[in-house]
Design a protein around this nucleic acid. Structure first.
Lengths: 330, 330
DNA sequence: CTGAAAGCGCTAACAA
DNA sequence: TTGTTAGCGCTTTCAG
């Protein structure tokens, strides 16, 4: 059944009684070809169901119309959204996308990047976990390349975690909160550094506002387990590292008989799909991951066209005010 | 900076003072080459940082070491899991994966499949939305191909939605429930047909068990809105189309002052990440999506090796008993 | 306007 | 064992 090999340009040429060159020309809408001939070629082509072998074209043209993207973990919603935005944007421009999941293995990252890159015209490196030194080295080998959520010697697009967190703090402060707790999550992540910066920022500019840092974690249990620490701190408002820990805290607080937001205001981060369904709905900030992906493609496309995209394009997550934040009652 | 063109096999040959063929041989560990020469070639290769151009190899070998996968929607968790499983399994076997998102456009599906396929050695068509006729046509053009969650004239892997639903029904029945409601979701989906079959099955075999079908929907609101209908039906246990609608119902019931599972047992479907965190935790069934992806790759790999994989490999979602189901109290 | 021919970088006969 | 050569399928000078 799979015996019939694809028809080649030679078949079409033969069928139309012209040379390969002519077929190539009409297929590429290239030079001026006699309309009659062109028509004849086109007829033959459709009759034979011909379409050029992309591999052969790639080889001679030196371009594959494909880009590759390597992500640390395809099960992470952030990267999923990124991939979706990237894929759709690239497809819209006639590009294909090769995807590689490094499964959080630093060493795999380099290899995947190199290998994928050779099969494509450019690379999107998404939040690479490798060291700065390793990154610099890889970056030099794989250009054109664009970085997502990481700085380096290449154009990059990144989400700004600092601004939205600061906005949430201002929101709480405006409501009257003066004692705010931050449930810290992944210590070493780049986004955490940005959040800490927002905290310092707020401490420096907000009169009479105290902000505590409470080590917690990134999941539901971490949030739930930190309830006592939160209450001990006397905080009336809390910024959770992400929605999951926020929900854990919310759940624990509710079970303890506290009312949210009456006794405690809670804000999450990420806007996971379920965030709108907690009771009350969770105040949070949504990272526009798909947009991040689309922007990454646009930067890479610019590079491919010999243009110079912005060195770093940043997108600001949107704060979504729902029911878990309100004026403090104590 | 990106000016230096890749070193070719010719460079290596020149550097090592041998012919192209020899370099090719040692690079492929092929024929017996004099160890001394081989070593010399290897040295030159690493010194020059040479690695064969995959495009050129693909062209001459007629194989790309790449497979492609087209999915209807990269934002759907089912397909995300599938892609992850597929990607990791394929990478483990040294294959690359080209991904295309049809964005639920039936017409795009065909084109994406064809185009991706030509850049790769095989295709995984994931839950294609196109008609049976269109599918049959495409299938013939893109072999080797494997289908995911859809039947057709090609090997396929699919999740079995019937068995787990039946298991949940048996679970409820065993608990003493005799009036069970099914909150119907997407009417036309293949998985819905399987669920209805499970319902019929149960009706035919379970003594004195009545199963009602209540039109609802696929989201949280649909579940919440169906509370009255559920109560009117007198059902003591309900099977929701998915976790979201189950959570909606759970939420509405709780707000109405009912206790779950005391007054009402509720089961969802999908095991979304938040399902374990509702109170009580949601009884549901988890589709092993990553496994589905890995199996799809295994089937395709078999095809690529000229073997014949099972016509249809089915995986059974696992029922996860949590707190929302218990013996009825009325 | 069209065809012949030279490659793109590599592999695989086929000779030597 | 090694080198020479003919392609893989296509695009693109370069003549005509």
């Amino acid at each position: 059944m799979a015996g019939q090999k694809q028809t080649t340009i030679t078949d079409v040429a033969k069928h139309a009684g012209v040379s390969l060159a002519t077929v190539s020309r009409v297929m590429n809408g290239n030079a001026t070809v006699d309309p009659t001939l062109a028509e004849r070629v086109r007829t033959s082509a459709t009759e034979l169901g011909y379409s050029a072998n992309p591999l052969a074209r790639s080889l001679v043209l030196g371009k594959t119309q494909t880009i590759s993207v390597v992500v640390p973990d395809l099960s992470n919603p952030t990267f999923q959204g990124m991939l979706r935005g990237l894929s759709r944007a690239a497809v819209a421009d006639g590009y294909h996308v090769l995807v590689a999941d490094s499964d959080e293995h630093e060493d795999q990252e380099r290899l995947l990047a190199l290998e994928s890159r050779r099969r494509s015209d450019g690379l999107v490196l998404c939040a690479p976990r490798m060291s700065d030194a390793a990154l610099a080295e890889v970056l030099a080998e794989v250009a054109p390349v664009v970085l997502v959520n990481r700085a380096g010697d290449a154009p990059s697009v990144a989400a700004d975690y600092r601004t939205p967190l600061r906005e949430v703090i201002d929101h709480l402060y405006g409501l009257g909160h003066r004692r705010i707790a931050y449930l810290a999550g992944a210590k070493r992540s780049a986004s955490n550094a940005q959040r800490l910066a927002a905290l310092d920022d707020a401490r420096a500019t907000l009169d009479g506002c105290e902000i505590y840092e409470i080590p917690a974690g990134v999941d539901f249990a971490a949030g739930a387990d930190s309830l006592d620490a939160v209450l001990d701190s006397g905080a009336t408002g809390v910024l959770a590292f992400n929605d999951l820990s926020a929900m854990g805290l919310l759940s624990a607080a509710t079970e303890r008989g506290l009312t949210v937001p009456g006794d405690l205001s809670i804000a999450g981060f990420d806007d996971i799909p379920f965030a709108r369904y907690t009771s009350p709905g969770l105040t949070t900030a949504a990272v526009p991951t798909a947009e991040l992906g689309a922007l990454a493609w646009h930067a890479l496309r610019a590079l491919l066209q010999g243009e110079s995209p912005e060195a770093m394009h940043t997108v600001v997550p949107q704060v979504i005010l729902r029911g878990t934040t309100a004026a403090p009652t104590r």
